[in-house]
Design a protein around this nucleic acid. Sequence first.
RNA 1: AGGAGCGUAGCUCAGCUGGUUAGAGUGCCUCGUUGACAUCGAGGAGGUCGGCGAUUCGAGUUCGCCCGUUCCUACCA
Length: 953
Amino acid sequence: MDSTFHPQSIEQHWYQEWEKRGYFAPSGTGDPFSIMIPPPNITGRLHMGHALQYSIMDALIRYRRMQGRNTLWQVGTDHSGIATQMVVERNLATEGEPDRRALGREKFVAKVWQWKEESGGEIIQQMRRLGNSVDWENERFTMDEDFSNSVQEAFVRLYEEGLIYRGKRLVNWDPKLLTAISDLEVENRETSGKMWHIRYPLADGKTTASGDRFIVVATTRPETLLGDTGVAVNPEDPRYRDLIGSQVILPLVNRPVGIVGDDHAQMDKGTGCVKITPAHDFNDYAVGQRHNLPMINILTKSASIRQSAECLNSDGSDNNDIDALIPQKYRGLNRFEVRRQIIADLEESGALHAIEDNDMTVPFGDRSGVAIEPMLTDQWYVDAKKLAVPAVSAVEKGRIKFVPQQYENMYFAWLRNVQDWCISRQLWWGHRIPAWYDDNGHVFVGNSETHVREKYQLGMRPLHQDPDVLDTWFSSALWSFATLGWPKQTNRLALFHPTSVLVTGFDIIFFWVARMVMLSMHFLRDDDGQPQVPFETVYVHGLIRDEQGQKMSKSKGNVIDPLDMIDGISLEDLQAKRTANMMQPQFAKKIAARTKKQFPQGIEAYGADALRFTLCALASTGRDINWDMKRLEGYRNFCNKLWNAARYVLLHTEGCDCNGDTDGYELSLADQWIVSRLQAAQTDVEHALNNYRFDLASQALYDFVWNEYCDWYLELSKPVLWDENGRQTLKTGTRRTLVRVLEAILRLAHPMLPFITEEIWQSIAPLANIDGDTIMQRPYPKADPALINLEAESDIEWLKSVIVGIRSLRAQMNISPAKLLSVVLEKGGAEDHRRLQQNNQFLCKLAHLSEINWAAEGEEVPVSMTAIAGDLEILVPLAGHVDIEDERQRLSREVNKLHTEIDKLEAKLSNASFVNKAPSHIVDKERQKLEELRTSDQILRDRLAAVSRIESN
RNA sequence: AGGAGCGUAGCUCAGCUGGUUAGAGUGCCUCGUUGACAUCGAGGAGGUCGGCGAUUCGAGUUCGCCCGUUCCUACCA
C-alpha cells in the first residue's frame, strides 16, 4: 500500500466491479426498502445539489442494503419540456440549421430524440463517479413508451372523472417561449419603475364630489389602457360612489367605459380609482368576472400590440359589440415601445396627471428571463382543490412524515390554498395531450385517435389532435408509481410502493412533492382500500451555497463542479469552464480573477469518498449549507488517516495468526476498551442514520476512528506488539482486535465512504476470517451490549489522563518530547495502584518515561512539577528541567482556575432552593464535583507552598 | 404585509426532551523527521452562545418583544 491514499486508483475499478456483478439490483429477499431518485433534467449536468442528494440517498440505500433489506434505488431522468426544447433550438441555431418552425414538429421532435441519444443524460453517467448504487437495469425516462402510456392513462382517467377540464383563462404567458407557464415557474424580481397618474375625463358632463371633471387612475402599465373595460371605485368611497354606473372616456382611444363599485378598489390606496383591464391583469380579471365586464386582448402572443383587438365577453364568448379600435400608430409596437409612445401622447394631450417613482416586483419567466404577461388563452387544468384534500390529510395523520418536520408547514400552506393547475404547455417536446377536436370544436379525450373514434362513434369525421403538450411536472407527479409499471399491477409496484423515503430539496415541495402525493393518492389504493401515499418519509435537505452564502450560479461564476473536486482541475481549465457560454460575457474577466484568487493552484483531486463524506457532514437540519473547501480537505485527510491506519494494521497482522486459531488469545485492557468503545460508536452512527442526521453519523464515525482508534488504540497496541518478551497469546489478542475493530469500522463507514472501505476491506476481511466478495453485502455492524466494558473504559480514561497530564507538563515547561522522564506518583488510592501496575508498560511508552516510582507515605519527594489525575498526584522532578519560578507561576495559574470553579459550585450548593428543589442526583453530582476540585486544589496548593519554600531558600 | 429558517471560537457548523468546565473541523501559536500517516503527532490560546425581558433552584436550550440576515407566499392602482 502507498503511504498516501490515492482515490483515483481505486474508485472507477470498484464501481465497474460492483455494477458488473449486479450488486445494485434489489436482492429479492428481505423487507423492501425503496427510494425514487428525483429525476434529473436530461439537459443538466451534475451540480453540488445533486451530489448532496445522491450522497445521502446512496448512504441510505447502502445502509439498508447491508441491513438485509430488499433495496431498490430507482433511477431515471426527466424530459424537461422547456429546457430541452430550448437547448435543441439553440443548437440548431449555432449549427446554422433550419429553426424549429422551418423543420416542422415531427422533424424537430426527431432532432430532440437524436440530441437525447447523443448528449442527453450525461448526468446519469456522472452519477457513477459518485458511486451511486442505483438499479441500472430498470432506468426510466419520462418520455419512454411505457412511461408515456402511464401519463396518457392518468390524463384520460382524470378527464373522465371530471378532474381535468379545458378553459379560457388568464395564465402566465411567456412571450419569448410562447407558452403558458405555471406560477411556480415565475420568478418575482424587485425592480424600480414609475407610477403614472392618468386623467380619465368623465362622460356626460359629470363631476366628482370635489368638482373635478375627471377622475385620476394610477398605473404602472399605462399601455394597458388600450384594453381597459372599466374603472373600479370603492362603493363606500364618498368621493366617487355617486359616479358608479356612469362612464369615463379613455384617453387616446376615446372609448367610453363604465365605473363600477368594487371592494378591490381601496380608498386609501393610490387615487382610489383603479383602471380595469381584465384581459391583462389577474386582479382585473376577477373584477371583470364580478361585473361582467368584457375583456379586450390587445397583445399578440409575443407581447406586441395587435393589429386589431380581440374582444370577448366575461364568459369567454366572442363580443362583436365593442368598438375596440387600436389607433394605427400603436399597432405592431412591442410592449416597451408602446409604453413610451403612450406616455408621450398622454403627456402631450395633458392627460398625464403625475409621475412618481415606484418600486415593485415584476414577474419574470425563470427559463426565458423575460417579463411574463398575463394572457387570455385556452388551457387545460387539473382541479387541484379536490385532489389536495386527501394529500393534506395524509400528512396531518402522519402517514407521510416530513424530516425536518417544519417543512410540513410549507406543504400545508400551499395545498390548503392551491389553485387549479394549468397543465398544458405550448411546446413540441413533451407528452402530447390526448385530446382530439372535430371541426365544431367538440373535444374527445382518449388513448388514441382510433380509440376516440370508436368510443364516441365519430365515424370518419375529421379530427385533429390538440397541439399542446403536458407540463413536465404532470409526468413527474406520476414518477413514484409509473416507474414501477403503473397502470399495470406489476410485482415491482406491489413490492416497492409506497416508497420508503423521498430525498429532496425544499424548493420543489410545491412543484413535485405535493403533486406526487395528490396523484398517487388518487390513483393507487392500499390493500385496505385506503388511498396510497407515494412515500412514507420526505427527507428535506438544505440548499448548497458558496463560502459567502451566495447561491451557486453560472452568472455569478461561483459554481463548483463536484467532478472537479473528485478529479481535480487546473486553474486555467476552471477559469475557462466558468467563463464559457456566458449570458453576460462582460463579467468573464471578473470571474476569472475571482477564481484565480480563490483557487490559485486550481482544485486538487480529493476523490469521491471525501466529497461524499463532506456532504454528509454538512447535511445538518438547516436550510442553507455553505460549502467550505476546508471541510473537504479535512475529510480527505480523514480518508488518508483511515488508509494509514489500515496500513499499520496490515503491517502487523499479515501473515500472522490474528484469530488465536493455534494457541488461543487473550485480550489486553486496551483491546477490551476499544471493543467497548466500538459498541458506542455503532450505536451512535445507527441512531444518527435512522434519524437522517448524516452530520452526526459522520461526526461519530470520525471521532471514533481518529480520536479513539488511531490516536489511542493503535498507540496502545505498539507496546504489546513490539515487546519482544511479550506473551504470544496477548499479541494474538491485540492483532485480533486490531483487525476486527477495523473491519467493523469499514462496514460502519461504508455507506458514506464506499470506495476506500471496499478497497481496504478486501485485504482486512480475510485476516478476520470473513468470507464474502464485497463489503456491500456484509451485515451492517450492530452494537452488542455484552461487549460494553465500563471498567475497561474507566481504566483507560485514567491512563489517558495520566499520560495527558505528563505531556502537558512537558509542553508547558518546554521539555523535549524526545527526553525520557522519570516520574514519581504520590497519594492516590488502591485503584490507582492497581491501574499503574496493569498499565506500567503503556504509560512508559506513551508518556515517554524511563521509570515510574511510588513515593511512600511521608517520604520526602524531590522538587517537582505536578499534575493531577483524580486524587493521584503526578510528579516530574524539576532537576535540570525548568526554572522554579516558572513552575510556581504555572501552579498559581492552575490554582486560580480551580478557584473560580470552586466558588461557582459553592455558591450553587449553598443556595437552599437549589438543594431543595433540584433532583437529588443532580445535587449529589455537584457535591461530588466540588469534592474532587477541593482535593485537587489542596494538592496544588501544597505543591505551590513547597515550590515557594525552595524558591525563597 | 404574512410565514419560515438562521444569528454559538477568526471561518464553516454541532449542541436531542432545560443540569458539560459550551464542542468539532478548519485557521492561529509553541514544540516535534523514533519504523501507519507532515493529508502527521504533542501541547496551547480563543466564546458574557445577536439584544432585552419572562418562566425556573438552574436557560445556548422554553416563552415574549426587539435587532440583523436569508428565503418563501401575497400585494403593489
